[in-house]
Design a protein around this nucleic acid. Structure first.
Length: 231
DNA sequence: CCAGACGTTGTT
DNA sequence: GTCTGG
DNA sequence: CCAGACGTTGTT
DNA sequence: GTCTGG
């Protein structure tokens, strides 16, 4: 779950998350998908925060030689992330914020896969809880994954998992490099309050990752045929 | 010690 | 059916 | 997550 | 590469 998301307000990231301005490397996206490079915020070590584009989807080292043996890991279950060998080290020292303004989940309606867009009530930026692998130094191997948890009442009609969205007051904790005890992070995994989220049908053009434009956020019916009898 | 898994989601 | 690419 | 490919040789 | 299971 959570294999597609929205990040509209690139220019607000700097102020909202206290990081240097993003210049040049990133555009807003209405259809962020695994394998793409997307902005991620992490602790810079000296108390500062950095923002850089990383690849969505961890590729474990043991997969690399022939490119086989494991799919890209674009989600990690919060319930087990402290135990799984692939994630436990990253949980202790490589947590990150992944800025977004929404995410998609699909409903199958009459044989069609219809994406629904989930967002905060106010449409504001928020942070997914993520883990990142910095790769080997200056490398282009750096990648991230999104944690998932049980769904709240807005999401549960669509899926049995939802991405971990951090309450703003927990963002500092999530990024704090001095916090290396997994138990201290468990409060972060609570499903985001349903009364602060909303949802609506989006365009089926979301399904094809090559589509990336603001009109994806509107449902197919908006301004379309009156009876919804799309071909 | 060596062998084998290592991950999530959705679907059946 | 399963893998790859975005 | 979904969409789309999934293969080789020889010839242009 | 690293962890778990036998």
């Amino acid at each position: 779950m959570c294999g597609r998301y929205v990040l509209e307000d690139i220019e607000d990231i700097s102020e909202r998350f206290k990081v240097p301005p993003i210049i040049g490397f990133q555009r807003p996206t209405f259809n962020a998908a695994p394998t793409q490079r997307l902005p991620v915020i992490f602790s810079g070590g000296d108390g500062s925060r950095a923002v850089e584009p990383l690849r969505w989807g961890l590729t474990p080292a043991w997969r690399r030689p022939d490119g086989k043996g494991a799919p890209a890991l674009f989600n990690a279950r919060a319930e087990t992330v402290a135990e799984k060998p692939t994630f436990r080290r990253l949980l202790r020292a490589h947590r990150c914020l992944v800025p977004a303004t929404g995410f998609y989940e699909w409903a199958t309606e009459g044989g069609r896969k219809v994406p629904h867009r989930f967002m905060l009530d106010d449409g504001d930026l928020f942070a997914f809880a993520g883990l990142y692998d910095p790769g080997k130094g200056d490398d282009a191997d750096a990648a991230f994954t999104l944690l998932t948890t049980r769904p709240n009442d807005v999401v549960s009609p669509y899926h049995d998992r939802m991405p971990v969205i951090l309450r703003p007051d927990l963002e500092d904790l999530w990024l704090d490099p001095d916090v290396d005890e997994p138990a201290l992070l468990e409060a972060c995994y609570e499903p985001y309050p349903a009364d602060q989220m909303r949802e609506h049908a989006a365009s089926t053009r979301v399904n094809d990752v090559r589509n990336d434009d603001p009109a994806l956020l509107a449902g197919d019916d908006e301004g379309g045929s009156p009876d919804g009898a799309n071909r």
